[in-house]
Amino acid sequence: MALKEQILEDMKQFMRDKNQVALGAVRMLRSEIRNAEIEKGGDLNDDEIVKLVSTAVKKRKDSAGQYKEAGREDLASKELEEIKVLEKYMPEQLSEDEIRSLVKNEISKLDSPDKKYFGQVMKAVMAEVGNKADGKVVNRIVKEAFDANN
């Protein structure tokens, strides 16, 4: 089943279950998919939908952090619940150890582990991990790897 069809089926199930938090998250996602399809002028493939889901998860993580800072735990917990629903549509995320292994492998290909190659390593690792890792996590791990080598 295509990801778009899975999202529609889940939305129907959330309606039957009267799960308002999950239903709201999936409705917002479907809306974003529809808007992107209108903008593109055609249907989105699964990879494009995964990118939209990833963006939606990042937005909610940012919102949850801001709500916590403002002392609004109720709103932060709602955002975190929506993240759990949306993450179901993303590929399984790589662990930090797996990312470290990829980073170490890329750095070993270099002539010297100099920070001037940071961008090159980031580009290579992000191309390899795709949607299976958050760019912020990869960035932090690459920085740590270069700091450890210097």
Rank of each mutant, 00 (worst) to 15 (best):
Y67V: 04
R60H: 04
Y117M: 11
A70C: 02
G71K: 10
K59C: 02
K51P: 01
Y67R: 09
P113N: 11
S77I: 02
E82I: 01
L75F: 11
Q66M: 13
S112E: 14
N131S: 08
E73T: 15
S54I: 06
A124L: 05
V103Q: 02
L86W: 09
K59Q: 12
K109Q: 13
K109E: 13
K132S: 01
K104N: 12
V142I: 13
S101C: 02
D62V: 07
I107M: 11
L86Y: 11
D111E: 15
N139E: 15
D62W: 03
A70D: 14
L94A: 06
D47Q: 04
D62P: 00
M122R: 08
V121W: 11
R140Q: 14
N35Q: 14
Q93T: 03
S54R: 12
S63M: 11
A124Q: 08
R34L: 12
E144G: 05
L86N: 02
I107S: 08
K88A: 08
Y117A: 14
G135S: 14
R34M: 12
K143P: 09
R34P: 01
I83Y: 14
K84S: 14
N139I: 03
T55I: 01
G65R: 01
E144Y: 02
Q66V: 14
Q66H: 09
K51D: 00
A56K: 11
Y117G: 10
V121T: 10
L102H: 08
Q93R: 08
K143A: 03
V103L: 07
D114K: 11
N131I: 10
Q93D: 00
A127R: 14
P91C: 13
Y67T: 07
